[in-house]
């Protein structure tokens, strides 16, 4: 068990963060806090991708994905992190902030229409209409 956690700590951390993010989305009454929970969930997923890309040999970490400027195809013995998951996460972060902004605009709109950000109050107000 300890050995499992020691070698897969990034994934274990990701599961815990996923849980916390999910808890915020479910349990928080305030809509802004729900959105923070979505953000937290997102960063956990990013952590997963980054941890997948990471590489080390005999406990020594490799390098960042910057290949030296040689035309010699010696890349076989380059120990570098995989660039592909990094690219996916990179675009996902920017899309994530755009998503957050749209959500926040919706929250501002909801507050203007109903005068509350609390989920239970909002449900009552909607039921009264």
């Amino acid at each position: 068990m300890i050995e499992l956690l020691a070698t897969r700590y990034a994934y274990a951390l990701m599961f815990v963060l996923l849980g916390i993010g999910l808890y915020m989305v479910i349990a928080s009454e305030n809509l802004v806090k729900k959105l923070i929970g979505v953000n937290l969930f997102q960063t956990a997923i990013f952590l997963f991708f980054v941890a997948v890309a990471y590489v080390e040999v005999d406990g020594e970490p490799g390098g960042s994905p910057v290949v030296p400027a040689t035309t010699e195809p010696a890349a076989g013995d380059l120990i570098l992190a995989s660039p592909l998951p990094h690219v996916i996460v990179l675009t996902a972060i920017v899309v994530g902030i755009a998503l957050t902004a749209v959500g926040l605009a919706l929250i501002v709109r909801i507050h203007a229409e109903y005068g509350t950000l609390r989920e239970d109050t909002l449900r009552e107000v909607r039921a009264d209409e």
Binding site: A10, F46, L47, V50, A51, A53, Y54, V55, P61, G62, G63, S64, P65, L80, A81, H86, V89, L90, I93, V94
Partner: peptide, 12 residues
């Protein structure tokens, strides 16, 4: 992220 060798992700 920096520790996991993802400089671009960490900067973003």
């Amino acid at each position: 992220y920096t520790l996991l060798l993802a400089p671009d992700v960490a900067m973003t």
